[in-house]
């Protein structure tokens, strides 16, 4: 039972981090219609900034720079590239992001080399134990912070003019523009938010129990794609809930791999996608998705 609860807690905390990434996918998609294949390298850029600056300027300052840096990177990608596509449609935008991903990842790989850069977070390798369940402090902090961030997102989208304008533009950008909402601004805000969330997720994905910042960190955004799809492309709530689902399911599949051996080895890899396909069969627009997505 303790074992189960430990895995569950693990899965939940991991799921909340996945949620941060998946929400970034949602916001970029709803604000600019882009399937952001470069999300992983934006995440890595943020984490890299933190890791390389935490020595000289301390962790908290570095974290702030990393989050802002990733947000700025997102805004630049949108302003310089996405908005200048010869032919703006989701298909070409997605492939454009693949190109961006190649460039960013190559440069970051060159800079990081085969080092594993320490993120230098104050919680180090501490753990918290409650009733036999042991969880790394970083995960507890991550879970707490993710919940706070989601709360802030709720406040932003439900209470502030800018957030409501973003929701309006996401629902119907044409009409929103007629009301004076500037699409360039909501797009930039979306990319900035997504970049910042990715950097936050990156900091925790590079914290203990993970070793630090390595190029493979960029791949962690792939793990959030099933969560994004499962929740529906345009639902922030969906992304958060499905992040939790995927996190828990993955943790349990890995934790009980021995018992599930008849399904083949390496189950943790396929289970998120299996869940995603099964849910899509029942609900073709995901758990919380509203409209069907645009075609390529």
């Amino acid at each position: 039972m303790t074992y189960f609860l430990t895995q569950l807690a693990n899965g939940l905390s991991y799921g909340l981090i996945l949620g941060l990434i998946a929400v970034g996918f949602v916001i970029v998609f709803t604000s600019t219609g882009v399937l952001n294949f470069a999300h992983g390298s934006v995440l890595l850029s943020g984490a890299y900034l933190v890791a390389s600056l935490q020595g000289p300027i301390g962790f908290w300052a570095a974290a702030a720079v990393g989050v802002v840096g990733a947000a700025v990177l997102g805004v630049l990608i949108n302003a310089l590239l996405v908005r200048n596509l010869a032919e703006a449609n989701p298909g070409t935008a997605a492939i454009l992001m693949l190109g961006v991903d190649i460039v960013l990842l190559t440069e970051l790989t060159r800079r990081i080399g085969n080092n594993v850069l320490s993120i230098g977070a104050p919680w180090g390798a501490d753990v918290v134990s409650v009733g036999g369940i042991t969880l790394p402090t970083s995960r507890v902090v991550a879970a707490g912070l993710a919940i706070v961030v989601f709360g802030l997102l709720w406040f932003l989208f439900a209470r502030t003019g800018a957030g409501i304008a973003m929701r309006a533009a996401a629902a119907d950008s044409d009409t929103a523009a007629m009301m004076g909402v500037r699409p360039s601004r909501t797009g930039a805000a979306g990319w900035a938010l997504a970049g910042a969330l990715a950097a936050v997720a990156g900091i925790f994905l590079a914290s203990f129990p993970a070793p630090g910042v390595a190029p493979t960190l960029a791949l962690s955004s792939f793990a959030a794609i099933p969560a994004w799809v499962l929740g529906g492309f345009d639902s922030v709530v969906g992304a958060i809930v499905s992040g939790l689902i995927i996190g828990v399911v993955t943790a349990l599949a890995v934790g009980y791999e021995a018992e599930l051996h008849f399904l083949g080895r390496g189950l943790g890899e396929v289970v998120p996608y299996a869940v995603m396909i099964l849910v899509l069969l029942v609900r073709p627009s995901g758990l919380f998705g509203r409209k069907e997505a645009v075609r390529v």
């Binding site: 399937l35 994004w228 083949g264 890899e269 396909i277 899509l280 069969l281 073709p284 995901g286």
Partner: peptide, 23 residues
């Protein structure tokens, strides 16, 4: 049953399934 990007990303699942089977 699926359309657009939903179909695209659902088919990613096939690739991971394929890997699982191949291994």
């Amino acid at each position: 049953r699926l359309r657009g990007i939903y179909l695209g990303l659902a088919t990613i699942g096939l690739v991971f399934l394929a890997r699982h089977l191949m291994v």
